[in-house]
């Protein structure tokens, strides 16, 4: 009899703990690590904000090896964590295999489309945000030459570059845009020294505004631009504060909002493709006390007008990834 009660008690305890775990979302960072001052950190900020506002808690893991991608997904799913959010396109391959095994668990993947009934694919219209900062760059430039420094040479970053060039040319059709990619491997996301060298090279070619879409490499771009007295444009998070008065603006990609929304929705997470553009606050430019002296009233008026047109659908910015070409150079 006592044995029986003990067993029942244990079973009840297990059921309770399982119930408690059910509400807990999980967040998986990519190999770059949680504190990269850019993409992963934005995801962490969003989760942190959710935890502070709701008093909830979440599980998180920074991966150490490729094999752990699948492992982390499965272990969190088996533990009852729901929804499971992952930051980065590199999870796409694994998630498309794992998701069907856990039909009751909701997954959210950022920057990649995975077609499964229980997956929310969050993609951003980076070309729209880049278009806006491109316009600002062209208006702030005195030499008529602006620069773009990308991280790893992948279609996603070319999408940034293409939107940026379109924005520049919309303001000044005769402007020159110098484009450089930092590298072709994931190491290019975290190479501030190379970023700095590329910035120097672009300055010597006459660029007086540079846009860095390069993760951790961008820190070197912004630093060199500030040292040399030219303007720079940050990316993903608001990086204006890094060099007050010397960063023209930042192209905000609200990864934090995407993570926040997914955790907020909890188990009721709406699946399917979720496009975050200008219209729903997914991308935009940053304006705060650090750059308000740099952004003139004309600039704001022009950019805000363009943003409204894009949101309303009157102005279309070409998406590089739709056909792997860019209409302007």
């Amino acid at each position: 009899m006592t044995m029986m009660t003990k067993l029942l008690g244990a079973a009840a305890g297990l059921a309770l703990s399982a119930g408690a775990a059910l509400a807990e979302p999980a967040l998986i960072f990519d190999l770059g690590g949680k504190f990269d001052k850019s993409f992963n950190e934005a995801a962490f900020t969003g989760a942190q904000r959710w935890a502070e506002e709701t008093g909830g808690s979440f599980r998180e893991i920074e991966l150490q090896s490729e094999a752990q991608r699948e492992q982390a997904l499965r272990r969190f799913a088996e533990n009852g964590n729901n929804p499971i959010v992952m930051a980065g396109f590199a999870f796409g391959n694994v998630l498309s295999e794992v998701a069907p095994d856990y039909p009751d668990t909701k997954f959210a993947i950022i920057d990649m489309v995975v077609d499964a009934p229980n997956v929310r694919s969050v993609v951003f219209n980076e070309h729209e945000g880049s278009y806006l900062v491109g316009m600002m760059a062209a208006m702030a430039s005195e030499s008529g030459t602006v620069g773009f420094i990308g991280g790893m040479d992948i279609p996603l970053i070319r999408k940034f570059a293409c939107g940026y060039v379109q924005g520049v040319k919309a303001v000044n059709p005769d402007a020159t845009v110098i484009q450089n990619m930092t590298g072709t491997t994931p190491a290019a996301w975290n190479d501030p020294v190379k970023g700095s060298e590329l910035t120097q090279a672009q300055i010597s070619q006459g660029a007086d505004v540079v846009y860095a879409a390069a993760g951790g490499t961008g820190v070197g771009v912004l630093q060199t631009a500030a040292d040399e007295g030219i303007l720079s444009i940050g990316v993903d998070s608001n990086q204006n504060y890094l060099h007050p008065g010397q960063v023209l603006t930042s192209m905000m990609k609200r990864v934090d909002n995407a993570v926040y929304d997914a955790m907020e929705a909890g188990t009721d997470l709406e699946t399917g493709i979720n496009v975050m553009g200008i219209a729903n606050g997914g991308v935009g430019y940053a304006l705060d006390e650090y750059n308000e002296d740099l952004v003139t009233a004309d600039m704001r008026a022009a950019v805000d007008a363009a943003a409204e047109q894009i949101a309303a659908g009157d102005l279309t910015v070409h998406d590089y990834m739709s056909d792997n070409t860019c209409p302007v150079e």
Partner: peptide, 19 residues
């Protein structure tokens, strides 16, 4: 390696310390 992954999953021990 596998035990280290488990530590990373269920504790707050940062991955650098697991290394």
């Amino acid at each position: 390696y596998q035990g280290g992954a488990e530590l990373a999953l269920w504790t707050n021990i940062p991955r650098e310390l697991i290394v």
